[in-house]
Computed example of a mutant assay.
Amino acid sequence: MKSSRHDIRWSIGDLAERFDLETHVLRHWEDKGLLRPERDGAGRRVYGEDDAYRVATILASKASGMSLEQIRTLVDASTEGRRDALKAHLAELDRRQADLERSRHLTAHALECRAHDITTCPGFQAHVADIVDGTRRGLPLLAGHSPGHR
């Protein structure tokens, strides 16, 4: 007979090991309101399968760049502002994705560029000239740079 979700019971050490974490991490997340393990008769933490899914959600959310406060909003059904927090996180992910695309394009250009010093490449210089001359701030997306500018 297969066990049900409610039959699984892990100690803090067992759950931490399952996710390759130190036990103090689970205690910290409990202090922050992210986990609410049951207690046995001796007061020891006892985790079930629902707790394991919560830990997996916390880890996946942290990997995506969410703060513990944002994650608490995500996993706490009673917290207001869940949709706003998720919208803000999506906007941040979009910004990070654009940064990664910009970095990838620059790296690919540098790999193919004949210039030994990328800063001397006329094609690269053309893409950052507006920053250098002060008419723009930040690094614009380098899309549209043709290999002929090497």
Rank of each mutant, 00 (worst) to 15 (best):
S3E: 12
S3W: 11
R5P: 11
R5Y: 13
R5G: 11
R5L: 12
H6I: 10
H6V: 10
I12P: 09
D14Y: 02
L15D: 08
V25N: 05
L26H: 09
H28P: 03
P37S: 02
P37F: 11
D40H: 12
G41R: 15
G41K: 14
R44Q: 07
R44H: 08
V46T: 07
Y47W: 06
G48P: 07
E49P: 03
D50Y: 14
D51T: 02
A52W: 12
A52I: 09
Y53Q: 08
Y53A: 07
R54T: 08
R54Y: 02
A56F: 01
A56K: 11
A56V: 09
T57C: 05
I58Q: 02
A60T: 00
K62F: 11
S64D: 07
S64P: 10
S64Q: 10
S67W: 01
S67T: 09
E69P: 04
Q70T: 01
T73V: 06
L74N: 08
A77E: 13
T79K: 12
T79A: 14
G81I: 00
R82W: 11
R82N: 02
D84K: 08
K87A: 06
R96T: 14
Q97S: 15
D99E: 15
L100C: 15
L100G: 15
E101C: 12
A108G: 00
L111R: 07
A115N: 14
D117G: 06
I118R: 09
I118P: 00
T119P: 01
T120I: 02
C121T: 08
G123T: 00
Q125F: 07
Q125M: 04
Q125I: 04
A126T: 05
V128F: 04
A129N: 07
A129V: 02
V132N: 06
V132F: 07
D133S: 10
G134S: 05
T135Q: 06
G138K: 00
P140R: 06
L141K: 12
L141F: 01
L141S: 13
H145W: 13
S146L: 14
G148R: 01
